[in-house]
């Protein structure tokens, strides 16, 4: 049974008509054609599918689309104002040359973007304790440096 769900994605009002149990992940990727949010495990374990829903960090493979009604969703594609004017987390990711295969990284950036909202001056321990995403290439040391850099970029921007 399909139903219509209305929500905002990256600032734009949208609606989809899908099975209510369909994960937000597949709606974002295949109904809305935004491919930056990744499928990694399908069980909310790896964090590759992380997005923001009403400002909170959510693993979108475990977020049935019915929960999105009336909510505001941000994906990696909506994080920055433009490709030239990047969100501090994305800018820091470039500055620190963080990624390797890159597949899990959009999820990490979404988590990092949320983290610098809560911690204006995060320590290594703050980052280690609060982000549990999985990366196989081993970009961890650069992720930690980039999140700290993003926090200071954010401060100097504001």
């Amino acid at each position: 049974m399909k139903s219509k769900i209305n929500f905002t994605i990256n600032g734009k009002q949208t609606s989809v008509e899908v099975n209510l149990e369909m994960p937000l992940l597949w709606v974002i990727r295949d109904e809305l054609n935004l491919k930056g949010t990744k499928f990694g495990c399908g069980r909310a374990m790896c964090g590759a599918c992380s997005v923001h829903v009403d400002g909170e960090l959510v693993r979108s493979c475990s977020f049935a689309i019915k929960r999105a009604q009336g909510k505001s969703i941000t994906t990696i594609e909506g994080l920055s104002e433009s490709e030239e004017n990047l969100h501090p987390i994305q800018q820091a990711w470039i500055d620190e040359n963080v990624l390797q295969c890159g597949y899990c990284q959009t999820g990490f950036m979404m988590a990092g973007a949320k983290l610098i909202e809560e911690f204006s001056d995060p320590t290594d321990e703050d980052i280690k304790a609060n982000i549990s995403n999985i990366c196989r290439c081993g970009t961890h040391p650069r992720i930690i440096s980039a999140i700290k850099r993003a926090a200071s970029l954010k401060k100097s921007n504001s």
Partner: peptide, 20 residues
Amino acid sequence: GPIQFCSGCHGDDNNVYSGV
């Protein structure tokens, strides 16, 4: 929280897709 809230993975019912 403050980054990972329960609701980031757990909804109001068992998730039929993820099994969460």
